[in-house]
Design a protein around this nucleic acid. Structure first.
Lengths: 192, 192
DNA sequence: TATCTTTGACTGAACGGTTGGTCAAAGATA
DNA sequence: TATCTTTGACCAACCGTTCAGTCAAAGATA
């Protein structure tokens, strides 16, 4: 059959696929989709250009894989019972912290995500999955503000969404020297 | 001497320069700097590729002109006494509205601005002017929250900055169907 | 008025360099 | 040996940029 078992090859390929994905994410996040070249990505992944095409059939498909992978991670985070549905001031603060942590841990992905959403000719690639994600966490917070007795739960949830988006943006642009703790306290004070 | 007076030429050139600038802004905002080609920009401006180079010496310099022009507009807005330094709940709401209006009116510019800031290899082009702008309006709001007796004026101003950034982002991504009025009311309720 | 001259805006073919993508050949392993 | 991985030279297409040449408009001349 083959010099290595099918399973051995499968595992090796899966591993290398991840290696390429991570390299692509880093390069595309820093240079934009059009600014990132296949050569740059291959170099970052430590492989040749040709090999990349044995794992992903085109640059566009590589981007799609990148988006799917990142959004699946985000969806998994949302479904984590450990982080879901805040009921008290404390769990609100905990979920807020977890969310920030997720964004900062995967900051390359979220930078790419943001950039893609802002470019109409690219946004189609990410819009559907993004919309689903936003609706999901919006629903959670509408429920929270409803339970809290907000005068307008939907508006408060959307404003809180804007806070998260803005905080995410500010942290991505200037990750150092941001007084995160003090701002988080202020958010809890105003929203929790 | 000359077939047209120097002044006539000057005016014509100034006019066409604007025409190119607007075309470039539209194309670059929608496709990103690297995704936008000189051909696309020239086509959008209704001129030939060659002519563009008699007005701007390179694609990079065109981008710089775009940034300068947009940031000067923004700076002019900040210095407008009509919009400066909120002292009361009402003037806070008025300035908030004016700011949103500016961003939506120049949404192409702010989309480009955001995208550039998020890409490290591009951010150098806009970072200095952006920083100056942010510091300026941050100062205004630190003073406002100080006067209001906030427990932590700096943190509250930064949080308010995040609100503006997030709201701006949400409006750029989904300009229609955003419940702006209700969210603005909520902002005034929480911050003014 | 009719003709000539001068000007600079304007065009698009062409250039060198880079891109995404292909492929024949070499390498590695059991 | 048989099979899959890996390489990098290679290609057509496209990029930003240049430049030789065209053109309409307006002053100058008689």
């Amino acid at each position: 059959m083959s010099p290595k078992t099918q399973q051995q090859f499968q595992e090796l390929r899966e591993q290398k696929k991840m290696q390429i994905l991570n390299a692509a994410l880093k390069v595309i996040a820093n240079h934009g989709y059009n600014g990132a070249t296949i050569s740059m990505i291959a170099r970052e992944a430590g492989i040749s250009k040709g090999l990349l095409y044995s794992y992903y059939e085109s640059k566009e498909q590589l981007l799609e894989a990148l988006i799917s992978f990142g959004m699946e991670k985000a969806a998994a985070f949302m479904e984590d019972p450990d982080a879901g549905k805040p009921h008290s001031k404390e769990s609100f603060a905990a979920m807020l912290r977890k969310m920030i942590q997720m964004v900062m841990q995967e900051s390359d992905f979220w930078r790419m995500y943001t950039t893609l959403l802002l470019q109409p000719n690219m946004s189609g690639k990410i819009q559907p999955q993004a919309q689903k994600f936003v609706e999901q966490y919006l629903g959670i917070y509408i429920a929270y503000f409803q339970k809290k007795g907000s005068r307008n739960p939907m508006a408060e949830a959307m404003l809180f969404g804007a806070v998260l988006d803005g905080l995410m943006f500010d942290l991505m642009v200037a990750p150092d020297q941001y007084p995160l703790e003090e701002v988080l306290e202020m958010i809890v004070e105003k929203f929790a």
